[in-house]
């Protein structure tokens, strides 16, 4: 069995650097949005009583789709902003897969282009597959 060595170590290292930065910025941006929304939420409703978290409302609580979240932000609702931060956070690792895919395409690593594309399709299926049930 012959030893397989990565053909372009340089390209590998570059992509790793980009992935590292992208992950960090994703988390920082998401946290900032959540912080802004959270502070606004406390200003708007901080003196109110805690919602009954003992009972699970599910979808009726709202903010379960991007259009509802955007609508909420348009209406100046703090919960919409927090939820937008949540969406950015969830998008961060998904975007990382896309970056990896670009990296493997640049390296012309066919096997890993396929593997990464499979993972990305699973994620896209999870987003658009209508698994709300």
């Amino acid at each position: 069995m012959k030893k397989v060595i990565s053909k372009s170590f340089l390209a590998d290292a570059d992509i790793e650097k980009i992935i590292g930065l992208q992950l960090r910025y994703g988390v920082v941006i998401a946290s900032l949005i959540v912080l802004i929304g959270g502070v606004l939420y406390l200003v708007q409703q901080g003196q109110g009583a805690i919602p009954p978290y003992r009972t699970f409302l599910g979808e009726s609580a709202g903010y379960t789709s991007l259009s509802q979240i955007v609508k909420g932000i348009g209406a100046g609702q703090a919960k919409g902003i927090v939820q937008m931060g949540v969406v950015v956070l969830i998008a961060t690792p998904i975007l990382r897969i896309a970056f990896s895919l670009v990296g493997f395409i640049l390296e012309k690593d066919r096997l890993y282009i396929i593997i990464t594309a499979i993972v990305l399709s699973v994620m896209l299926f999870s987003i658009f597959g209508g698994l709300k049930i």
Binding site: I50, P51, F56, L57, G58, Y63, T64, K79, Q83, V87
Partner: peptide, 10 residues
């Protein structure tokens, strides 16, 4: 998220 498990307040 689509099922409403993520509550902004929590």
């Amino acid at each position: 998220l689509q099922r409403g498990y993520m509550d902004a307040g929590i």
